[in-house]
């Protein structure tokens, strides 16, 4: 990878992907919890989630918890791979710069 994955490279999306990556496979995080971790507004977070969903990196589920609407998301298989590739890309840059 000579160029960073521009979808993941954006700082808010990078935080979203990092937060999702540590969840056990299949485990989902609620929108409100993710917002607390990433520390952005609802609208901003929603827009970035939309971009990640369109690129196939995250899977979004909307349902009801009792009577309350709930949005949850997790990394997709391709998202997990893209994130691993992005981290490798960063590590390669650092390694290449060392004498």
């Amino acid at each position: 990878m000579e160029q960073p994955d521009t979808i993941i490279h954006q700082p808010v999306r990078l935080k979203i992907m990092s937060a999702l990556k540590v969840l056990p496979p299949g485990e989902m995080i609620e929108f409100v919890r993710l917002r607390a971790l990433v520390q952005v507004t609802d609208g901003n977070l929603g827009a970035h989630i939309g971009t990640l969903e369109e690129s196939g990196y995250v899977e979004v589920e909307k349902d009801f918890d009792g009577k309350k609407p709930r949005t949850r998301l997790r990394l997709s298989k391709s998202g997990r791979k893209a994130f691993a590739d992005y981290v490798s890309y960063l590590k390669d840059i650092i390694e290449a710069s060392q004498p």
């Binding site: 990078l14 990092s18 937060a19 960063l90 650092i94």
Partner: peptide, 25 residues
């Protein structure tokens, strides 16, 4: 292309967010 400093900073951000997410989970 990213500079080594930018790459370091991105890795630090990733590690910090992963730690917070793991803790919250």
């Amino acid at each position: 292309a990213l500079s080594p400093d930018q790459a370091q900073e991105a890795l630090r951000d990733i590690a910090a967010t992963e730690r917070r997410s793991f803790e919250a989970y």
